[in-house]
Design a protein around this nucleic acid. Structure first.
Lengths: 337, 337
DNA sequence: CTGAAAGCGCTTACAG
DNA sequence: CTGAAAGCGCTTACAG
């Protein structure tokens, strides 16, 4: 019923199966006349090449693996949309691997990926460590399989290309904006776990504070709301805070809530800003000022870079930094346009 | 380097390739002694079966397609985690297909999926229509390929199994809770686009209102925050509202914000509740009362049902409804425990 | 319990 | 521009 094979097409078009294959994959090598006849038969029969046979014979899968740490981070979903759109344009399928820290280690998953014979790997795990990077390099070298880091970067090394924004600069600008408002006691709220990307934000924050001769203070939270609330409450009792640069929107919103519960006014008494420009930023009251990360584009561009690598095209820029904006809203005093 | 094939294993273990294949796939058909020898060699050589050859020879892919409308809906990411965890247990890979309304129609994507020879399909598109359902049935019948609906249901027909919660009952209970608070002018805020799932919530709402002899009023919004805000503002000027059952948390939070901007107090003057129990619910002020949908479990169970179908095991219950809770928080008066 | 052999549906030099 | 044929790395009756 749906099992038309290349033989059926060849028979119906009265050519050899080699010609059918060429008509599909190297149309220019087939006489237009024949090509059209073949294509028409393909259409009529609803023929779709068997992906396994094709993969086996050609040693190419037209499949890429997307490796993600945990889908539920808001940014990742939107990044997937960008990846999927570009993948579709270039006819790649997406094999999704979600890392859960439980049973299987990342190394196992990567072995699985290799066994699946993907043509390339998109690595969305933003908490990349030295040893993980080294492991990726090994894979890259041993299996000749292109890898791109999506929304992460590994500043010491660009052997594996990466696509993100300049988080260091963004952290700097965001902090500078609060300094320009006259804030003195600006805290960065970062995460306990060390993410490369948050590291960069911290660097930018530190630079801005040092330039302004202010004392930088970084507090680290888990991502969990309930814990944050207590943690932040304590801070209000014991610290003088008039500015917050949070590494994520949701953390910033948590902070706003705690501030207001402590009768501290946002933005009169304290300015709060975040990173990402998720829906949280628009749903919070006051609306959150934040760095607008073009997360869809990061996904799309990193997939595009990967397609180039899979085609052996040269990749001139191995550390792509997309532009970012700062969206000024009501959680800070300074409301530029 | 990494290209050990079944021949290499067979050679090193001094058996035929048939035996190697059996040692992997039907261990009980191989003498324990030989089996262990083979397995040891596999370990040593780091042999991984070539997925394409295996797929081609066996006509099974151990891959499932997950078809999603748009990753960025909050619920889908978490559902994917549930799906992925169970998929891993049963050794299935996930091929991800994201529908964007642009170029390719759903029908094209499904053809692609079939060409990819997946063993099963998980369908997460919650706005399923009659014609889509019919098309899925065709696929099911023609290609003998199992399909499960995840977090959707198609009440008129259970030929295609589905896993969700009883959204009708949940809508009823949520509405009833507001009625029990003494609210009279309870609106349901639903979506312009017709989602099966929201239909169910509306049914439950209507039933509760009718039982209480109250006039049901359904307003429909797009999901976009900016539009909602205007829309809701108008409502406050022209209507008497003392209760809101929103079909999504984010819509409920939008409504809370607009209410407060109009100096209407939540929950003193108006009770507001939503659906899903996302992070929005905890980040809003006041915290949002809502139906807690076990979205991870929905993903996990639907994947489990699919594995059963792929193994030809009988599926007794074709319309699985998982339990749900209502989480009472500060956006409603009645705070049960 | 094990092996020889056919076959899965393609691609791709190699001839012509 | 086209065809015959080998080969990709497995699985699976079929014998034994």
């Amino acid at each position: 019923m749906s099992k038309a094979t290349i033989y059926d097409v060849a028979g119906a078009a009265r050519v050899s199966l080699a010609t059918v294959s060429r008509a599909i994959n190297n149309p220019e090598k087939v006489k237009p006349e024949t090509r059209e006849r073949v294509l028409r038969v393909i259409e009529e029969l609803g023929y779709k090449p068997n992906a396994f046979a094709k993969g086996l014979a050609s040693r190419k899968s037209t499949t890429v693996a997307v490796l993600v740490p945990d889908m539920s981070r808001a940014s990742i979903a939107e990044m997937m949309n960008g990846i999927a759109d570009i993948a579709r344009v270039y006819k790649y399928s997406i094999l999704l691997y979600i890392l859960d820290n439980e049973e299987s280690t990342e190394e196992d998953v990567l072995k699985e990926i290799i066994a699946a014979q993907v043509d390339g790997i998109l690595y969305l795990n933003d908490e990349i460590t030295e040893s993980q990077y080294a492991f990726l390099q090994t894979i890259n070298a041993e299996h000749q399989i292109p890898i791109v880091l999506s929304n992460t970067l590994y500043p010491e090394n660009d052997e594996i290309p990466s696509v993100s924004i300049d988080y260091d600069a963004a952290g700097y600008e965001m902090t500078k904006a609060l300094i320009d408002e006259g804030r003195k006691n600006i805290f960065m709220v970062s995460t306990v776990r060390k993410y490369m990307v948050n590291d960069q934000k911290e660097r930018g924050y530190l630079r801005a504070m040092q330039e302004a001769q202010l004392t930088p203070k970084i507090m680290r939270t888990s991502g969990r709301i309930s814990i944050n609330t207590e943690h932040f409450n304590e801070y209000f009792r014991n610290h003088n805070v008039d500015g917050i640069v949070a590494v994520r929107d949701s953390i910033a919103v948590s902070f706003i809530n705690v501030a207001r519960a402590n009768h501290v006014k946002v933005p009169e008494d304290i300015s709060v800003c975040g990173f990402q420009n998720t829906k949280y930023a628009s749903l919070s009251r006051p609306n959150l000022t934040c760095v607008d990360v073009p997360i869809y584009d990061i996904g799309a561009v990193s997939m595009r870079v990967l397609t180039k690598m899979m085609n052996q095209e040269p990749v001139e820029d191995r550390t792509v930094m997309l532009d970012h904006d700062i969206v000024y809203r009501a959680s800070t005093k300074q409301q530029k346009d």
